[in-house]
């Protein structure tokens, strides 16, 4: 069964790995178009994340000591390490899924796609642990943001009552949780400025890792859609190319994390914290 193209080549074949659309000269050209199209999208993504990295570099350059101190205090190097390990492994399973699709070993494609999804969910689980800790500590930028540099004394106005507090007090955070208005004023040092700088650090942290997390979730959704389509024998996924495109996207997500981990977590780590915390 074939339809002749302008070039006199067949566009349809019983083998989906050989078939190509009418406007291509040959299968190789169609494959190249897919890959170049995906890379074009990935280049826009590089610029997208690149702008955020630039913002981070600029602020790190303005307050180098302070931001690395915040990173050292509040980001868990160990959890970041585990997540890097998980994501690098998921890249391996994804590469294996693509290879299995190219070799038409369907069972293996399912296995490696599910393995990749499982690893992605593990990654998001670790991220959830990290985020919930920051949420509980009121480190999410916004009206309830609360940060006191270690040892800094502040005068807090909680529901109209003025009290002097030091870091470690949970009363202010407790009041904040219950939605009461409170304000913090510095008594000594530069508590306000360090709180502002911390808020900028956490803004960048949440935007960069949050955006990355959204990419992970979208990757999982795309993989699930492909698995469902494969299950129902959709002709759209009979070819290996959709899986290869998903693979390219997934490896890109991995690459972003490869840079995020040293930039955010390892800026100024504490060996003791890594080993025991």
């Amino acid at each position: 069964m074939s339809v002749e193209t302008l070039h006199g080549e067949p566009v349809q074949s019983d083998d989906p790995h050989q078939a190509f659309a009418v406007h291509y000269k040959e299968r190789k050209q169609q494959d190249e178009s897919y890959i170049v199209g995906m890379w074009t999208f990935l280049v826009t993504e590089i610029m997208f994340f690149g702008a955020l990295f630039l913002a981070y570099i600029v602020f790190r350059n303005i307050w180098p000591g302070e931001l690395s101190e915040i990173s050292r205090e509040h980001l868990n190097v160990k959890l970041g390490f585990i997540n890097t390990l998980i994501l690098l492994t998921s890249s391996l399973t994804m590469a294996m899924a693509v290879q299995s699709a190219q070799r038409k070993i369907e069972g293996r494609v399912y296995f490696f796609m599910f393995a990749t999804i499982a690893l992605a969910l593990c990654f998001m689980g670790v991220k959830f642990v990290e985020y919930s800790k920051k949420y509980n500590e009121n480190h999410v930028p916004g009206p309830l943001f609360h940060y006191v540099a270690e040892g800094a004394e502040t005068k807090a106005t909680v529901a109209g009552v003025e009290v002097v507090k030091t870091e470690g007090s949970t009363e202010v955070a407790h009041e904040a949780e219950h939605g009461r208005k409170f304000s913090l004023e510095p008594v000594k040092g530069s508590a306000t400025s360090s709180a502002q700088h911390a808020e900028i650090f956490f803004s960048l942290y949440f935007i960069m890792t949050g955006l990355h997390g959204i990419h992970v979730i979208l990757g999982v959704l795309v993989m699930l859609i492909i698995i469902v389509m494969m299950w129902f024998k959709s002709p759209l996924v009979a070819d290996f190319m959709p899986i290869e495109m998903t693979g390219l996207y997934w490896h890109f997500v991995d690459i972003v994390w490869i840079f995020l981990y040293p930039a955010l977590y390892l800026a100024h780590p504490d060996l003791q914290k890594f080993l025991h915390g």
Binding site: A95, V98, H251, I258, P262
Partner: peptide, 21 residues
Amino acid sequence: IIVMLLIATVKASAVVLVFME
């Protein structure tokens, strides 16, 4: 941090060249 980012670049290159084919 320079060394760490250089290592990250090497890692990314390995992923681009082999995993991303």
